[in-house]
Design a protein around this nucleic acid. Structure first.
Lengths: 224, 224
DNA sequence: ACCTGAACACCGTTCAAGT
DNA sequence: ACCTGAACACCGTTCAAGT
């Protein structure tokens, strides 16, 4: 006969809660219901537990979101060849963009901007290594990485929004811009308005900003 | 004797609600209580009105926030001399940063990234004019502007967070990074960690990213 | 046309109480 | 040590009803 005290029946059906289990459940909720559906109550329900139980393992929702972000970055393995640092950085940035886009609303997880957690640390080490080996000072490399990652995170948030507006056909912004341009008081904007349209070349625009940043990075690397 | 129907007594004490009045009230609430205090109920209370009244003039809170952002950008007058486009852009970006920092949490107002409203339109026209006159194609100028403004907005959100963490002394991020670096498994990060510290050169880091972008912009302008 | 009262369907978080 | 039950103090938004 099993001792009820040390081994209650529920223990076999549902293992004890842990930060890892909670993060895994939160990941499911985020993928299924998006950032608006990611509530403490929903994560708790996913684990068949009451919401306050989560507060034994995380001090607050922000901490859970940070841990979840770091978890989602764990399986990000950069495929680089180490020949040209410019190509490597370019490739890594595109990979990070795709990684974030593939995990619903992951870019909106960090409440206070870019943050290096335990898993993200590995990726950061790789990036910093490339930049420092290319000839940057450690400080420049740190700034470059944080500027680049911030760019990509912000971009992905905006891109996800554009993709959704395309689906829903909600182009209120475009309509307002066109009305204003029609007044004739904004000649330069009138020339450029095509670039702001919803049907624009979205990946090309990502590359535009990325190439601008990399061009700036190049100036920090000594010529040979 | 005044007709009660057309001129009720309350009309003299409190004029009719309007989008402009609501935006002005929202501006007060934001400055006083920050983005977390900016609720429909708080804006309504500022106007001595019930919250549902606002929904007659704005479809939802997002629309009010967008209108508020545009309002806060109305008195942004760029001081440029038109001699060197690089200097002008640099100056405008610093001015936009200061403008956003001076209006509490204004950078967090836009729910879906950068947006050009009626007031912001004037500023956009100025920026696009400089870039196009410098020799950029209208499309490149549009991409450059949107990349630059996004960079500044994201930066300011992060900078406000850093400034607050300095005040509250909340440097949990730093502690985690130091613990991980102490394992010795991240040699490159160990060299760069000083740049991530809270006491870093914050304006220098802003300039770093800005100069990278402008270096990229320069490649889009024909040499002479 | 424009606003109020009351309610709906939620939130994050706290805390005494259970086991 | 770890979780539940119940509650607190809010949210954005809807909608019938008033004027």
């Amino acid at each position: 006969m099993i001792d009820q005290q040390t081994m209650p029946p529920s223990a076999k059906l549902r293992p004890q809660l842990s930060p890892d289990l909670i993060v895994a459940a939160a990941s499911n909720v985020l993928e299924r219901d998006g950032i608006d559906g990611l509530t403490m109550r929903a994560v708790a329900a996913e684990l068949k537990v009451q919401a306050p139980a989560l507060y034994w393992h995380f001090p607050n929702k922000d901490a859970l979101q940070v841990a979840l972000f770091d978890h989602l970055m764990a399986d990000l393995a950069f495929a680089i060849d180490g020949r040209d640092w410019r190509e490597d950085i370019h490739l890594m940035c595109h990979q990070l963009r795709r990684h974030l886009l593939a995990r619903r609303d992951s870019a909106q997880l960090l409440p206070h901007g870019f943050f290096v957690g335990p898993n993200m640390m590995e990726q950061a080490e790789t990036i910093l290594g490339i930049l420092i080996q290319a000839g940057m000072t450690p400080k420049d490399a740190a700034y470059a990485m944080s500027t680049g990652v911030s760019y990509i995170i912000t971009w992905v948030i905006g891109e996800a929004d554009i993709l959704q507006r395309r689906l829903t056909g909600h182009d209120g912004n475009d309509q307002l811009a066109h009305r204003l341009v029609a007044t004739g008081r904004y000649p330069y904007f009138a020339q450029a308005i095509g670039a702001f349209e919803l049907g624009g070349d979205i990946e090309g625009q990502f590359d535009f900003g990325l190439n601008c940043l990399i061009a700036g990075f190049e100036q920090l690397v000594p010529r040979r």
